[in-house]
Design a protein around this nucleic acid. Structure first.
Length: 774
DNA sequence: CTTTACCCACTTTTT
DNA sequence: GTGGGTAAAG
């Protein structure tokens, strides 16, 4: 514990020991950035700085929780009380929960995710009778987000002829009006979108000197991670908070700036020394992560960028293996080949699955790998994509919960008032919303007394009944915890019944998602009260607050512990793996077709590639396919230019053009399991017959439909399973089948799991994440 | 008011 | 290949 300073190198130690005054750390990839940050915080605490006075901001919840963990470890588990470590959004949300009333918001304000925001924008566009072909919610939201992140209020926006002109050019002259309306509506609904969390924090500090004073003195030491990814708004807030003490430490790497599309600006790093006197600058350029070949490749690639701070990472690590290049004919071959290599790495080279990752440019690329990994029985975990909390059925339930905690939120009520259908149609809802807007009465209050607003007979009854239900559920809030209320909501709203009665594949999946939501809420309410020494409020609003800013990437289940990880390069930032596969290395894909024209955009793509390479500790593969399916359509692409930017001597070419021969997926019985007839099998084993191969592969993906999003490995033949079959369920662990029922399309196995020997679980094999144990 | 069937746009990346 | 939105039928 006392020797926590011992294993730091000189610049790292200097950064940790630097006590007061502005400090900027330029930390190359793998140079021990997190270690410095966490050790620095631990050291401050050791030196007697109160945890209460420290603020550390990160970009992801994951980074934040990792930092907390590591600080605890350094301090030998004496718990870091009241440390404000979190993302910009979560920390500011936490502060705004207290301060919101000053800004005219309720303390239990709702947080809108981009989907909520888009839906509101859509309503506004319709309300103004604007052409939704021109006014696409997505683009509008981006524009509004840009404005907010540059601190341009709706008023300023509308008074600025430059924006008016730009919008006219883009045939969206009313955009400013939409921005204003959107802001007003959010406010009326008691809701903040992600950007508002920052904007309102800024407003709070600007408008209320007492608040500024309070937080300036609370946060005597401020640390910012990934400073290269901060935008102007974040910069302004940080600047204000830090101005009283100037004990601000920022860590960043311009070479890893990959969020400029979100308004991040590298200027914040470049100008740091202009903002403060006597800035201390420390450069960490010794890399502890990667073998030399990998690091050299990364250095060579990033050198191609003009706009950057020159630096050269070096390492004492071994030279290591060369980078391996894989070219395949198609995207599905790419999946198979890589699944094959992964298996080999695991079996022959004893690299755990959890130490490997497949990184891609876009989430859509995950499919071919999912399929291949599933066939090989390789456990995998996909990060990103459609988050659990974004699923329709989950959002519907959350909408019920949110309206209970915030009656002003018309958006949530609109979402659920007829879900499940209860005879309240479009016209009725529209009428309510018009009344709500005209008379400034929340939707929620209108339906309490529908007759008073001119609704008659069946409609009025339906509205009043629903209102009664919501009011009843509201009365439960003080008495019951989040889980108990959610149970009541599911029951009384008849949502659960609705899902349960839907026997389609999707319906069953939805039901299971709802169950998973219930389970996770239950789990949350059962957490011990005093983790981190904090009392944890188990109320519904507390629950909603904490999930609002969660993403899938943050959930870390034990069941994923030995899974290979699939994610976008963006979400891989900050992580490291022994073996990394950067896939889809093709022009138009990586670099993305949208970023080929502007040199600045292209350089960001290159930094993204740099980030991808530098995730690898020991082994790195790059792969590209000659053709791939882009939502149904076949497209052909050249290998990425980035491949050529790696010096040839660092690369070992494993061209697989027409001689792909699966090593681990070649036994006939393997194919039979998937319903391939022998003919197909022959095609599969004769890869030179590429046309047929392709054709069959397409069939597999489309027509045979033997798999669904979360499903198992073997599903289409009941003969695959037998009584006493041993298998592993990703959630429940090992078990054996005691009984089989259902039909070929829906096999239900009764399984007794080792952890619950006295309990028989009925598992829908179609959906379960199952691995057969031979 | 509800259900169904077709059409379309969508895929850059995230809090 | 998916999901959402719309129009017509029930």
């Amino acid at each position: 514990m006392e020797n926590y300073l011992n294993d730091l190198n000189a610049p790292q130690l200097e950064a940790v020991l630097h006590r007061d005054g502005p400090l900027i750390i330029i930390a190359g990839a793998g140079s021990g950035k997190t270690k410095v940050l966490t050790t620095r915080i631990a050291h401050l605490l050791k030196e007697g700085v109160s945890a209460f006075n420290i603020l550390a901001l990160t970009f992801t919840n994951k980074a934040a929780s990792e930092m907390k963990e590591r600080i605890k470890t350094i301090l030998n588990h004496s718990d870091p009380l009241n440390l404000y470590i979190g993302t910009f959004h979560s920390v500011f949300a936490r502060i705004l929960r207290v301060e919101a009333p000053q800004l005219g918001y309720p303390t239990n304000f709702t947080i809108y995710d981009p989907e909520d925001a888009k839906s509101l924008i859509k309503t506004i566009i319709q309300g103004y009778n604007l052409d939704d072909k021109l006014y696409k919610p997505n683009l509008i939201l981006n524009r509004i987000s840009d404005a907010k992140n540059n601190l341009i209020s709706p008023k300023a926006y509308n008074e600025n002829p430059k924006f008016q002109e730009e919008d006219r050019m883009r045939k969206k002259p009313e955009l400013g009006k939409v921005y204003q309306k959107y802001t007003d509506e959010c406010f009326k609904n008691g809701a903040m979108d992600f950007d508002d969390l920052l904007v309102n924090m800024h407003t709070l500090l600007i408008k209320f000197p007492a608040a500024l004073h309070k937080y300036q003195h609370k946060f005597k030491y401020i640390l910012i991670d990934e400073y290269q990814d901060t935008n102007y708004l974040q910069y302004c807030v940080i600047k204000m908070l830090a101005d009283a003490n100037e004990n601000i430490c920022v860590v960043g790497d311009d070479a890893q700036s990959i969020y400029s599309f979100r308004g991040a600006t590298i200027d914040n790093i470049l100008n740091f020394h202009k903002n403060y006197d006597q800035v201390k600058t420390i450069i960490l350029d010794q890399n502890y992560r990667s073998h030399q070949n990998i690091l050299h490749a990364a250095n060579a690639v990033i050198k191609k960028n003009n706009l950057q701070m020159q630096k050269n990472l070096w390492t004492h690590n071994p030279i290591g293996e060369k980078i391996k290049l894989i070219q395949t004919q198609s995207d599905s071959d790419e999946g198979k080949k890589i699944a094959d290599i992964i298996k080999e790495q695991n079996l022959r080279h004893h690299i755990d699955y959890k130490d490997m990752a497949i990184l891609y440019r876009t989430n859509a690329q995950s499919r071919s790998f999912e399929e291949a990994l599933r066939r090989q029985n390789i456990p995998y975990k996909i990060y990103g994509g459609i988050s659990f909390y974004q699923r329709k059925e989950v959002k519907d339930i959350l909408a019920y919960l949110r309206i209970l905690t915030n009656h002003a939120d018309n958006e949530q009520l609109k979402r659920i008032i007829n879900t499940p259908t209860r005879g309240i149609g479009k016209t009725t809802i529209e009428k309510c919303l018009i009344i709500s807007a005209e008379q400034n009465i929340p939707f929620y209050d209108i339906i309490k007394t529908p007759e008073a607003y001119g609704f008659k007979s069946a409609t009025a009854t339906a509205l009043a009944n629903f209102s009664t239900l919501l009011q009843y559920l509201t009365t439960l809030m003080p008495k019951q915890n989040a889980y108990e209320i959610t149970e009541q909501v599911c029951k009384h709203s008849l949502l659960l019944k609705e899902y349960l009665s839907d026997k389609t594949v999707e319906g069953i999946a939805r039901y299971q998602n709802v169950q998973e939501l219930l389970n996770s809420i239950k789990e949350w309410t059962e957490l011990p009260d005093n983790e981190d020494g904090e009392f944890i409020d188990k109320s519904l609003s507390a629950y909603l607050q904490q999930i609002a800013l969660l993403t899938d990437t943050d959930k870390n289940n034990a069941e994923d512990l030995n899974s290979i990880k699939l994610m976008t390069v963006h979400s891989a930032k900050g992580l490291e793996f022994k073996a990394v596969f950067v896939v889809g290395m093709e022009e138009e894909l990586f670099p993305s077709s949208q970023n080929l024209n502007d040199i600045k955009d292209l350089e960001e793509e290159r930094r993204l590639f740099y980030v991808a390479i530098t995730r690898a500790k020991m082994k790195l593969w790059l792969s590209n396919a000659q053709q791939r399916y882009k939502y149904g359509l076949l497209s052909m692409n050249d290998p990425s230019r980035f491949i050529d930017e790696i010096p040839a001597e660092l690369i070992e070419n494993m061209v697989m053009k027409n001689d792909y021969n699966p090593q681990y997926f070649s036994k006939p019985q393997d194919y039979a399991k998937f319903g391939f007839k022998n003919k197909t099998l022959n095609h599969d084993l004769k890869p030179k017959d590429t046309d047929n191969y392709k054709q069959k592969d397409l069939n597999f993906a489309t027509k045979e439909k033997i798999q669904t999003p979360n499903n198992s490995v073997f599903v289409n033949e009941i003969g695959i399973y037998k009584i006493d079959q041993k298998l592993m369920h990703l959630k429940f662990g090992n078990g054996r089948i005691s009984l089989l029922e259902g039909d070929i399309n829906n096999i239900i196995a009764h399984i007794i799991f080792d952890n619950h020997p006295n309990e028989v679980k009925r598992i829908f094999m179609k959906y379960a994440k199952i691995q057969i144990l031979e």
